[in-house]
């Protein structure tokens, strides 16, 4: 465990119980849902039903599914603009997310936010933010609110390997450490900040970026949902225990371009293919399920069909939901006092 301080309480490293069949099947279904959802979103984008920017999460599913599995109801989640997977993992309905992507009245933001700006107070998902890094102080503020209200909850704040070079991230680290705020910063390092590789943009190791503030950091294989879950369990216990923030750097990979219109010429096809064929989080879990005798081709086909039905229903809803009424142009600008 690569903690960067010895003086602080160390995150608990108790031997975690083996994941049950039920848990593994749940992770499988959740990751598959995100992947199939994103593939469908890519297709709808291709059909012109989704406009603007659309950043797909394909390849990174293990990160959010493993993190979410370690959280408790009431914990808040916030991320940047590659956010569809986070919303599904938080339990937001695929229909509402997809309908927001298509800019329809049935979307989570009534069609007024789009892919990058969706929220659900009910599910404690606080966005969906389009400005790289801006979610970091906001997530830190959600953690501040948890501490202020003494509600026992924590915030999980996702940021990318691009966002870690924004100054406001360090302003947040400083205050979170100073005030021992209950926040886990999950750096989803998919190796490329749009088209700029980590090597070309970031000096040093990302999980050590909190070390000057005494924030422990850990590097995690983000392509393996069980490793993510194990690290998440430790971090959640540490942070919920009142020890202040923690950083988890998830080494992950996105298979698609930065956004739908990115031809991804900054990396080789071989690199992408190698990640897909050798490190895919869903394939990996699938073989584990087979090895353990927890599933066979037939039982996974049932899950596949269920997931496909959810995604198809979401796409139907998202294409049939009406566009927002013209009167919506003028609503939600201010809360009526």
């Amino acid at each position: 465990m690569a903690t960067t301080t010895r003086r602080r309480a160390k995150p608990a490293e108790n031997a975690a119980p083996e994941p049950t069949q039920e848990e593994l099947l749940h992770y499988y279904k959740e990751m598959l849902l995100i992947r199939r959802f994103e593939e469908k979103a890519g297709q709808l984008y291709g059909m012109g039903l989704i406009g603007g920017f659309c950043h797909l999460y394909i390849g990174q599913e293990a990160v959010v599914v493993g993190m979410q599995a370690a959280q408790l109801p009431g914990d808040s989640v916030i991320t940047s603009y590659r956010d569809h997977g986070h919303m599904l993992a938080c339990g937001m309905e695929a229909k509402g997310v997809m309908a927001e992507l298509t800019g329809r009245a049935g979307g989570y933001s009534k069609g007024k936010g789009g892919s990058m700006h969706m929220f659900s107070r009910e599910k404690n998902f606080y966005g969906g933010h389009g400005i790289v890094g801006a979610q970091t102080p906001i997530g830190t503020g959600l953690a501040f609110a948890h501490k202020y209200k003494k509600d026992g909850c924590i915030d999980v704040c996702y940021l990318g390997d691009g966002a870690v070079n924004q100054g406001q991230v360090y302003e947040s680290f400083n205050m979170a450490a100073l005030w021992k705020l209950p926040v886990i910063y999950v750096i989803e390092n998919n190796k490329y900040a749009m088209g700029t590789s980590q090597q070309r943009a970031s000096a040093g190791e990302l999980y050590l970026r909190g070390s000057a503030y005494g924030i422990p950091g850990k590097q995690v294989n983000g392509m393996d949902v069980l490793e993510v879950k194990k690290a998440a369990d430790e971090a959640v216990a540490y942070v919920r225990g009142g020890n202040g923030p923690m950083i988890l750097e998830m080494k992950t990979y996105r298979y698609r371009g930065h956004s739908m219109s990115d031809p991804a010429k900054y990396r080789t096809k071989e690199e992408v293919n190698k990640m897909r064929s050798e490190y895919d989080c869903i394939d990996h879990l699938k073989s584990l399920l087979f090895t353990k005798g927890y599933a066979d081709e037939e039982s996974l086909k049932v899950i596949d069909r269920d997931v496909k039905a959810v995604v198809t229903e979401a796409a139907d809803f998202a294409t049939n939901s009406p566009e927002p009424d013209a009167s919506e142009l003028w609503t939600d600008i201010l809360v009526e006092a």
Partner: peptide, 26 residues
């Protein structure tokens, strides 16, 4: 000190943090 809080000199950070706190019900 829980309700009257000295911040570091970090305007971008504490403005964002306060927005998050407002989203969080404060």
């Amino acid at each position: 000190p829980d309700r009257v809080i000295d911040t570091p000199i970090t305007e971008h950070g504490f403005a964002g943090l306060a927005v998050g706190a407002a989203f969080g019900g404060l």
